Computed example of a mutant assay.
Amino acid sequence: MGSLAAQQQTAWAFVPGAKVYVVDDDKAVCGSLSSLLRSVALGCETFASADAFLQSPEPEGPACLVLDMQLLGTTGFEVQQAMASRRRCLPIIFLTGYGTIPMTVRAMKAGASAFLTKPVGDQELLEAIHHALHLDADALACLQGQDALMALYGSLTPRERQVMGLVVQGLLNKQVAADLGTSEITIKVHRRQVMSKMQAGSLPDLVRMSERLATILPNADLPR
């Protein structure tokens, strides 16, 4: 375990704050997995029930879920479904003592990161966790980027949003002015404000921002 721990610590050095959640109603399994994860310097939190996990705070950094398929009173599929309704859905690594091909297919189609059969080797599990943490790190960065973009867009006044929506369609200042019933000089002022508040270095930058916003703000005054 010593050499394995050293190798994996190096591999995870660039995933700061990584954490693994383990949900299993078998205390022995939770204890074993917790020891393994801590031996490679990974944060770990265990839960004996799905409800306890689902009520826990959302992690701040990259994380993944190691989930037993058959829990008391519920199944891993039900937990996966509950997670899917959240804005941030952690990658799930299923563990099961009796995996079947249909179960594996169902789990993977629903977005599982891995489906492993007990007993699973340390190396195989750690590799699956390593992959899942990187998936979540990428997803988290994307969400944070979306939040930052939405904050910039939220700083615009209603009129500035109208101007932005028309400008990214390629309309000239005088065309925007005619469309909104105001002067070209006023539109120039609004346009400068839009570029400044959105931190856009050029019109193509603003267009790309608009395209991203259109996917996360369906009711925004933006071109589709």
Rank of each mutant, 00 (worst) to 15 (best):
V22Q: 03
G61E: 14
L36A: 10
S39T: 02
R88G: 07
R38N: 15
E60A: 05
E58Q: 06
E45F: 03
S49L: 08
R38G: 15
T75N: 13
V22N: 10
K27W: 12
G73M: 00
M69P: 11
S56H: 03
S49N: 05
A48C: 02
A63Y: 01
G43W: 07
S85V: 05
A48F: 03
C64G: 11
I92K: 05
L90P: 15
S56F: 03
S49W: 00
L37G: 14
S56P: 04
L67P: 02
D68K: 00
L37H: 12
E58C: 09
L54T: 00
L72Q: 08
T46S: 11
P59H: 04
D51F: 07
A63P: 13
L90I: 15
M69V: 11
P57H: 01
D68M: 05
T75F: 00
R88S: 01
G43L: 02
S49R: 04
A84D: 09
S49D: 04
A82Q: 13
G31Q: 08
Q70D: 15
I93P: 10
R38C: 15
L71W: 02
C44K: 01
V79T: 04
L65T: 11
D26H: 07
M83D: 15
G76Q: 04
R86H: 11
L54I: 08
A52W: 12
D25F: 07
R87E: 15
V29P: 07
G43P: 13
L33Y: 01
S49I: 08
T75H: 01
E58Y: 06
V66W: 03
F53L: 04
E45H: 12
L36F: 06
L72M: 14
C30E: 15
T46C: 08
F53T: 05
C89Y: 07
F47Q: 07
L67V: 05
T74R: 05
P91L: 13
C64Y: 12
D26E: 14
A82T: 06
V79H: 09
M83G: 06
L36R: 11
S34W: 00
E60V: 11
L67M: 13
Q55M: 09
S56M: 00
Q81L: 15
T74K: 04
V40Q: 12
D25G: 04
D25C: 03
S34Y: 01
C64F: 08
L36Y: 05
G31R: 07
G76E: 06
V23M: 06
I93L: 14
Q70K: 10
Q80S: 01
Q55K: 08
F53H: 11
C64R: 10
E58F: 02
L36M: 12
T46K: 09
L36S: 13
I92Q: 03
E58N: 02
S35G: 14
C89G: 12
P91K: 03
L54G: 03
D68H: 00
F77Y: 05
C44N: 04
F53V: 06
R87Q: 14
V22C: 10
A84Q: 00
D51E: 15
L36P: 12
G73S: 02
F77S: 11
A50C: 02
V66Q: 13
T46F: 04
S34K: 09
